[in-house]
Design a protein around this nucleic acid. Structure first.
Length: 257
DNA sequence: ATGGTAGCACAGCTA
């Protein structure tokens, strides 16, 4: 099973890219973030034509998540963090085969110390408590998405410039750590410990052309799935296509049980 | 130290 995550930054604009990538990369499951469209506008039929069914939880203009899968969905789907009041559509959990998939679009946080930063930390704390339940109920858990956190300095093109800045600050990294402490592993780091692998490049200052990127799109796997992980990676290609998202797809390969 | 681009929507917010 190839399981991927991609922040498409508007599915209205990026549907052709998604279609092309599904055709070329042939993932089994893709978790999308920043679809920025209401559910009645989701391109369900266009994706069905490629053999993918969809679950989605969107809103106009901002946020929005979806899970697209070649295999049928089973079991219960979750579209909000239980017990956490939040009008923003940022989470979606579904079951595909023997895998529980949790798609997260983590709050960006704007700047360290801002109101949005406080929301980011509260949101992450609520997610952690929710994931604690999910992992207990579903040992084969994949938690993936746009984390808006670079786990450590290897994931940042210029750590000095980003030191204690948003996406890299100690409180954010500690919140991320506390998710791993539930028994989750960064699949990319099971196979690669080098610096310089990125998944997001700012549109501003031509970040992609200059190699100014961060690795903030992650695929976490539970202890049970760690043993079944056969590979993980980042597909930089779509970031070079015309009118790209600022993020590129990341993925993991999981062997059948 | 600041700014820069992209999307949505048509001013200003979010990233």
């Amino acid at each position: 099973m190839k399981i991927a995550s991609w922040n498409v930054n508007s599915l209205n604009v990026r549907l052709p890219h998604l279609q092309r990538w599904l055709d070329e990369a042939k993932p089994d499951v893709v978790a999308l973030q920043e679809t920025k469209q209401e559910d009645h506008k989701f391109p369900e039929d266009a994706l069905l034509e490629l053999g993918y069914r969809s679950m989605f939880c969107g809103q106009k203009t901002y946020n929005g998540v979806a899970i697209v899968s070649r295999l049928p969905f089973a079991g219960e789907c979750v579209t909000a963090i239980p017990g956490f009041e939040d009008p923003q559509k940022r989470v979606l959990a579904a079951t595909v085969g023997d895998l529980r998939i949790v798609d997260l679009y983590v709050v960006n946080g704007e700047a360290v110390g801002s109101e949005k930063f406080d929301y980011k930390l509260r949101w992450l704390a609520a997610v952690r408590e929710w994931l604690r339940e999910e992992i207990a109920a579903h040992p084969n858990l994949v938690v993936l998405g746009d984390f808006n956190i670079a786990p450590d300095d290897r994931d940042v093109f210029d750590p000095k410039r980003w030191r204690e800045k948003i996406l890299c600050s100690t409180p954010e990294r500690e919140a991320y750590r506390s998710l791993l402490d539930l028994g989750l592993h960064d699949s990319f780091r099971l196979f690669n410990d080098e610096a310089g692998h990125h998944s997001w490049w700012d549109y501003r200052l031509s970040g992609f052309e200059r190699g100014w990127g961060l690795r903030i799109d992650l695929v976490l796997v539970s202890e049970a799935l760690k043993a079944r992980c056969t590979g993980a990676g980042i597909d930089r290609e779509p970031r070079g296509w015309e009118r790209p998202s600022d993020h590129t797809p990341v993925f993991v390969e999981i062997a059948d049980a």
